[in-house]
Amino acid sequence: MDKELHIPGIGLGFRREMAEDMIALTSGKPDFIELAPENWMGMGGYWGKILRRATEAYPVICHGLSLSIGSPDELDMNFLRSLKSFLDEHDVQLYSEHLSYSKCDNAHLYDLLPIPFREDAVKHIAERIEVVQDVLERAMVLENVSYYTPVAAEMDEATFISSIVNESGCKLLLDINNVYVNAFNHQYDPKTFLSSLPLASVAYIHMAGHEQVAPDLIIDTHGQDVIEPVYELFSWALPKLNPVPVLLERDFNIPEMSVLVGEMNNLRNLAHKAWSKQTC
């Protein structure tokens, strides 16, 4: 499955607000796009046409929202089967999700809640990853999420993530901005944190902006430009990683496409500098 995951390059999150602009790009185009399957599954009409045009123009990676891998609830097998159909239809080779939960008591919350960093949660999630991979017939890639408070933790975040990767064999989506946000919010050193992750398992990288809402709190909004300290952390991490796809996320306060192209160029230059001896 490793071979299937390898889609190197710099990508851009595909959102409705910028869909037409992204499809129309003639220069500075992303190497791939990433979209949330839940926002496009079963969609006909205007948005169905937009999706077809986008998937004809770009390779597609999918980043899910509602799988809820860390939930106490049972996996939603109907949803998984629909998801597989969508991934197959659009020839999506890389599917990632969040290491969090978004559904509980049979009710979706549509946001990412922090999983207790505990050994039983590790085993629970590792079992579910196997099921998901079997149904989707794809390797699962899980993202380290931003969290604003630990909840009933019995281990630290890096141990939790590493344990899940080791136990399940899943791949890691390394969100550099989330590392920065968590390090700021929980007052630890982001480089030490990064060094303690299973970096050989990183299959994909996310970069994004955030918003500081209090002197001691950053919220992961994807609504601002990527800031310099996050670029620096990205540059620091790259030599420790295999060449993998890098995605720029921008979900709110979407600027002119030229600004996003500029940010993608920044990422491309940094990745090229770090991985110049390998294909990027």
């Binding site: 106490p72 939960y101 509980c104 008591d105 809640l113 039983d120 629970h124 909840v151």
Partner: peptide, 24 residues
């Protein structure tokens, strides 16, 4: 709520409490 074999009741309850807080 369905329980798996490995997730302890205490962990599940904590997750449920957080989710209910967010909803209610």
């Amino acid at each position: 709520m369905e329980q798996t074999d490995v997730l302890k009741q205490n962990t599940s309850s904590i997750q449920g409490a957080l989710a209910r807080y967010c909803r209610e």
